[in-house]
Design a binder for these strands. Sequence first.
DNA 1: TTGACAAAGTTATCTATATAACTTTATAGA
DNA 2: TCTATAAAGTTATATAGATAACTTTGTCAA
Lengths: 255, 255
Amino acid sequence: MPLSHSLEKNGREPAYIRICNSLKDRIAEGVYVSGDRLPSESELCRLHKVSPMTIRRSIRILLDQGIVTTVQGSGTFVRAPHLNQVTFSLKEFFDIFKDEKRTQVKLMDVCITKADDMVSARLQIEPGQRVILLQRLILRDGDPVIYHREFLVYDPARPVIEADLEITTLYGLFEGRGQAFLKRGEMTVEAMVLDPELAGHLNTQPLLPAFRLEHLFYDFDDHPVSWGRFICRGDVLRFKATVGFGISGQKENHP
Amino acid sequence: MPLSHSLEKNGREPAYIRICNSLKDRIAEGVYVSGDRLPSESELCRLHKVSPMTIRRSIRILLDQGIVTTVQGSGTFVRAPHLNQVTFSLKEFFDIFKDEKRTQVKLMDVCITKADDMVSARLQIEPGQRVILLQRLILRDGDPVIYHREFLVYDPARPVIEADLEITTLYGLFEGRGQAFLKRGEMTVEAMVLDPELAGHLNTQPLLPAFRLEHLFYDFDDHPVSWGRFICRGDVLRFKATVGFGISGQKENHP
DNA sequence: TTGACAAAGTTATCTATATAACTTTATAGA
DNA sequence: TCTATAAAGTTATATAGATAACTTTGTCAA
């Protein structure tokens, strides 16, 4: 399966894409290996008979993809492949919330309580201050697959509560149109084993594997507003990743 | 009228970065919300008193970061935030291999065996064909934390075996200098519970939580060469992620 | 041999303009 | 009213340079 880009795409392929893929191919084939210096930009201009800006655009793409590094005044160098940039997507996790036909969200409990030490530390509030405790159950085809326990800062001035109580809002908070009140979040994934209580919530056996996704969401003032944990049955969730150089092909857009 | 653009404005900050952050800030502040059209490029040129190419570069960064979408002939629009692009880094996992002072790799067993149905399917070879079975134990400070079981295609023509038997090579395969023979890989993370056998390997108790990282590595001809699983004690590994818009700041380079 | 310095080469940023492809909107004609 | 077309506006690609900042290397003098 050869990899010539020139013939494909009936020649309507932009020059910067063609040159970018050409360089990628040479790297993948081992013509240039890790640490090698690529031809200088002016050299590439002459080689491909294009203007400097076009070459720079090709180099920029390789730079963004982490395939090369550039050193001002020195040159452009092939980078070693980088396994530590492997990332796992949470797409499958959030797809559970998106699929409204199969997914139900059941509100188990809402109450106002006082923040203990852990909650107050996470939400950066005083211990004993009032917080909202939400407990939800996410059902897929009627079966509980995720248990969610979340603490929200209690602020009567902010219309967070009503919006957040909306059962399908969990996904809509970030994904929905209009102005979301959350700016960013941090999440952590850990492996765990279901204890009897959680197993009861999830209507399954204890001692089964599960993921614990801890989350901390911030508002636009960088104040924490929500801390909690998703407990996901291990048999309904997995994370996938791809690592390594793509030989060529796709544009660098986000379609 | 030359110069006077980049130098003074904000401490040598390039114009395209300044404009990019300015737009990001407006989006984060809610001046532009999801679905809104940004001012056209020519408009932004007049506003910021720069040339079209500079504006395009700013827009390109927002595009690459998934903050806006562009529609040729129509405009540039603010995208909804996108939780499904949340990713978890495997950096911590591979850092275990990188830290040579604390980490030892113990080769438990090497043998040549015949591929069963599952192995032959993964490695795209005939059932019964010979494969190399490797079993390793990764020790941290003397304690076993990861158990690795890997099947390699047996190809006398390729000097894979010796290189791969190198105990520290697991990390070096991708990260090392020179020409690596692996082009890309796929990995999957699952939650699991240690059975007595695995617990014995890892010198810990059964029924404890663990991660199972299944991997499939391909060579430069897109043929699978390695399939296997890492079993990681759940108490030594966790994955972290950040989601949401950054207000501004960093350049988009890979330093 | 060493150090200072100049020169050449390289990437980084930016200008100003041009053409093409595409979308939206306004307009004229039936 | 409806349709076809034109016009204007937008992004996409590309040219052909310019200046600045930085690195490497070579040369010359002490």
